[in-house]
Structure formats: structure tokens, C-alpha cells
Design a protein around this nucleic acid. Structure first.
Length: 326
DNA sequence: AAGAAAAACAACCGCAAACTA
DNA sequence: ATAGTTTGCGGTTGTTTTTCT
């Protein structure tokens, strides 16, 4: 007996999400909180499978995520964490709370892998830029363990370096492959921002109907959104734009969630932003506890870095101080 | 200016772990 | 204890955008 599909394949829409779909999804989550994805398509009328809804939310619509503009520091973090943890993107993303695993994965595949390849050349490195020696499963167990210990020490040191602000390692010398910066232009608008505008324009045009299902956004919830920062400026709203987010439209968007511009180099900004965020539905989001995600090794690195008072103050982002974060 | 190639990114797929009845 | 269901994760693909010729 095979595993049943996550949803009916028939009648399920695929491909890029439209602004309208985003609105519906955001509205629903705004009201019900994330989770129970199975029920989302049913309750919202979205012709998407639950998986797609979840992905859309976690990777784009969820408040607090930062897109594009990977900083040098983030790059280093990713590179070192990848070396340490391998392609465990979710684990890596847990160290960069503003980034999604998908984003990190894409960034790794499109940018960092190439960078490392250029930096190290092909010699001594296998695919994914990892030292080929790490994959030597022919060596004896004892050798392997010693090697592992060495690798751990190296990784620890590397992570230390990455966590240190004052140290600009050789990685800083990594230049974009061609003239461009890696990050998108400043004008790059996050999806949440896009949705913010959309919500404003759309909701005005479509007075929120309590809807037959519980999918509709109530006026109250709309008011909540306004209260939490959605401005009333509708000049750039998505009037008549029922296709994918066009650039001019996106560029004029404001933030639905009123986040300060995130900068991973400033954890205070982050905390601040997260506390703002706490007023939103994220507070209901059932995020896994942070600490259990940490393997012993990760925890050790975590603690070690914190003890050394290093730059990336993960310790600043604790459950106690930011209950909304996790 | 136009077409081709490369790069970037959004989204899908399948597997496996976690959860629930 | 277990079968069924849901969710999370990582790999991969498809589409769009940008750069090059």
C-alpha cells in the first residue's frame, strides 16, 4: 500500500503564488495562526496543497524573515556552519533566525559553492566544497575518529572566526563573481511587504466578508493589521494587478509587519523587531524549542562562542527574552 | 537590438520523522 | 503497539531575470 498523496493532485494549482493567494493565506494565518496546514486549503478555498501553503508561509510570508542581502557575516556563518553541519539547512537556518532554510540552501548552491570552488580550486575538495578528506570512509575507524576530532577543532576555530566581528577572514576577500553584489538592490521588497500593500488595496476593494468558511478575514483582523503597522497608504496598492507581483508594484510596498530593517550584524535590531513581531500571529506559531535542536556538538559550539563573548550573540536570542522567537 | 547562455530564485517532490487515534 | 496522517527537511527542477555575445 503506497503512501497517499499529501493532497488531491486533481484541481491543485501549482507554480508561483499570486498576490491574491498570498493575501488569502496571510489572512487565514493572521486569524488562525500557522499550523494545521491540512485544513488551510479547505478552509481558505485555496487550490493549493497543504504543503505548498506551509512552504509559502514559512519561506516568504512569515513575519521576521529577511530576504536577499546576505551580509558578509552571514556568508561566513553559512560557510562555516555548512562545513560543520553539512547540508543540514534547517539546522544552519536555526543559527540565522531571519533566514529560511530554503533561502540559505539556494544561496549556498548559487553563490557560496562557487565562491569556495574558486577560492580553493578543485583540488582537495569534493562536491559541495567540503574537504574531500572528510568523506574518506576508507580510513580506519581510529583514524576516522582522530580525523573527526581534528575536523571538529578546525570547524570550531572556523566558527569562532566567523563569529568574531573584528576578524575579517580570508573569506572577506571573496568577491562577487562578476561586478554584481550578491545581494539584491536595496529596493528589494520582501514578500511580507508586498502582501502588506496588497492587503490594504485588496481589502478595501473587497470588504472583508465573514465568508462562508472561516477563511475570510474579519474587519477586526484587518484593523489589527492596521494597528500593527499597516499604513493606510494605498497609492501603490495592487489595483487590477492579479498577476504575479510586478516590480513597480513590489517596490512601492510597505511593511505589513512593520519590521525594522533587519541587519544580522545587529542582534539588538533583531530582538527589537522580534518583539514587534510578537504582536502578530507569530506568537501562536508553534516553533520547536531551540535548544533541543542543538546537537551536543552544536550546543557546545554555541556555548563556547557565547562564553567567548563573540560577536554573534546567539545567547541574546533566548527563549526567555524572546519567547516569540521560537 | 536580439538571441543565447548563465545565474538566481521560487516552488515541487519524495522521504522520513513526529504525531495521533 | 501500530497504522494512518501530518509536518519538516533536503534535493531537485522549472521559470524568470540578468548578462554576455
Amino acid at each position: 500500500m503506497g503512501r497517499p498523496p499529501c493532497c488531491d493532485k486533481v484541481g491543485v494549482k501549482k507554480g508561483p503564488w499570486t498576490p491574491e493567494e498570498d493575501i488569502v493565506l496571510v489572512s487565514y494565518i493572521q486569524e488562525h495562526g500557522p499550523g494545521n496546514w491540512r485544513a488551510v486549503p479547505t478552509n481558505t478555498g485555496l487550490l493549493r496543497c497543504s504543503k505548498s501553503c506551509r512552504l509559502r508561509w514559512t519561506n516568504y510570508l512569515r513575519p521576521g524573515i529577511r530576504r536577499g542581502n546576505f551580509t558578509e557575516h552571514e556568508e561566513k556563518m553559512i560557510i562555516h556552519l555548512q562545513a560543520l553541519l553539512g547540508n543540514r539547512w534547517a539546522a544552519i537556518a536555526s543559527y540565522l533566525p531571519q533566514r529560511t532554510d530554503n533561502d540559505i540552501k539556494n544561496y549556498w548552491n548559487t553563490h557560496l559553492k562557487k565562491k569556495l570552488k574558486k577560492l580553493h580550486g578543485s583540488e582537495g575538495y569534493c562536491r559541495d566544497g567540503l574537504p574531500s578528506s572528510a568523506a574518506s570512509d576508507q580510513i580506519s575507524r581510529g583514524q576516522w575518529e582522530r580525523k573527526l576530532q581534528t575536523d571538529i577543532n578546525m570547524a570550531k576555530q572556523a566558527l569562532s572566526d566567523a563569529l568574531s566581528p573584528e576578524k575579517s577572514s580570508d573569506l572577506t576577500e571573496l568577491k562577487p563573481c562578476h561586478g554584481n553584489t550578491y545581494a539584491k538592490p536595496e529596493g528589494y521588497a520582501s514578500s511580507t511587504e508586498n502582501i502588506a500593500k496588497l492587503l490594504k488595496g485588496w481589502m478595501r476593494k473587497n470588504p472583508l466578508k465573514p465568508a462562508s468558511t472561516n477563511s475570510g478575514v474579519t474587519q477586526q483582523s484587518y484593523d489589527n493589521m492596521v494597528a500593527t503597522g499597516v499604513t493606510t497608504d494605498s497609492a501603490n496598492s495592487s489595483e487590477g494587478n492579479d498577476q504575479r507581483c510586478s516590480k513597480p508594484m513590489c517596490e512601492g510596498f510597505e511593511s505589513l509587519f512593520v519590521f525594522e530593517s533587519f541587519d544580522s550584524s545587529n542582534s539588538d535590531d533583531f530582538s527589537q523587531s522580534m518583539s514587534t513581531e510578537a504582536s502578530l500571529s507569530l506568537q501562536d506559531e508553534t516553533k520547536p524549542d531551540f535548544s533541543p535542536q542543538l546537537s551536543l556538538l552544536e550546543k557546545w559550539l554555541f556555548d563556547d562562542a557565547a562564553n567567548q563573548g563573540k560577536y554573534y550573540q546567539l545567547s541574546d536570542i533566548t527563549l526567555d527574552e524572546n519567547p516569540s522567537l521560537f
